[in-house]
């Protein structure tokens, strides 16, 4: 495989499924060696898919809420091609549970905060020593819920909004090092969405009506190319930004 990420090492958290898996596949197709950081065996499935297509990848079992796990991922990557790009994509397994804000309990909140926010913190702290000066990339994932609030998923909205504050501040902090920090806001067909659509056949058309391009994005072919762009040389003058990849759903900026 060869492309714009030739010779680079890319760490992707939560790459066992969904958008993270799509990012891993696309980065490998662009020439990167991908470290699939995932707490479950599905990380190995992502790696098998990449290898079957002729790409390079390794799975490191990782719970991003644990600093030791994240440091082990960075160490594994440094033992291969290094860490040129970190993509923190992992979210709580409870991300898709509809909740009333008044009923959000401490355990659900803790899980959201631990994976999204503390995970970002661990990735940044463990990642910076490995990221190259003048060229390192740190990429986070937000969501429409984080920018315009959510009637269904308030906890998810809080952590995804928080990650934009994280990114804007870290972009300023790391700019003197030549390491950029950006955010992607995807609207994608995820396993949770697909499962929900099976239960509720009207869900997909209802969502599609609110998307100018008329459909939910495909993780690998619609969302991940934006991540590959931000990871590549062409994005070197872009930092602190949110790249909205959602079929035109959100146009306020």
């Amino acid at each position: 495989m060869s492309g714009p990420l030739d010779g680079r090492g890319v760490v992707v958290t939560g790459a066992g499924r969904g958008v993270g898996r799509g990012i891993a596949l696309a980065c490998a197709a662009a020439g990167a060696d991908v470290i699939v950081a995932s707490p479950g065996e599905n990380g190995a499935e992502t790696v098998a898919e990449i290898e079957q297509r002729g790409g390079s990848a390794a799975w490191v079992r990782c719970d991003v809420t644990r600093g030791d796990d994240v440091r082990a991922v960075m160490a594994a990557a440094r033992g291969r091609r290094g860490v040129h790009v970190v993509v923190h994509n992992a979210t709580s397994r409870r991300s898709s549970e509809p909740t009333r804000l008044e009923d959000l309990d401490g355990a659900a909140w803790e899980d959201h905060a631990a994976v999204s926010l503390r995970g970002a913190y661990h990735c940044a702290r463990a990642g910076l020593p490995a990221l190259p000066r003048d060229g390192g990339r740190f990429i986070l994932m937000t969501s429409p819920a984080g920018m315009e609030g959510s009637t269904m998923l308030p906890a998810y909205g809080i952590v995804k909004g928080g990650l934009r504050g994280f990114a804007k501040s870290l972009a300023r902090e790391w700019a003197p090092l030549g390491v950029t920090v950006n955010v992607v806001s995807p609207l994608a067909e995820t396993p949770a969405m697909i499962a929900a659509a099976e239960q509720d056949p009207g869900l997909r058309p209802r969502l599609a009506r609110r998307i100018p391009l008329g459909r939910m994005g495909d993780p690998e072919h619609d969302i991940a190319p934006a991540v590959v762009f931000l990871a590549g040389d062409g994005a070197r003058y872009i930092t602190g930004q949110t790249l909205v990849v959602d079929g035109g759903r959100f146009m306020l900026l």
């Binding site: 909205g157 928080g162 504050g165 501040s169």
Partner: peptide
Amino acid sequence: VTAVEGIRALVKSA
């Protein structure tokens, strides 16, 4: 700042 942006999202969902 992470907390501030989280609070702004909280307020929008509320």
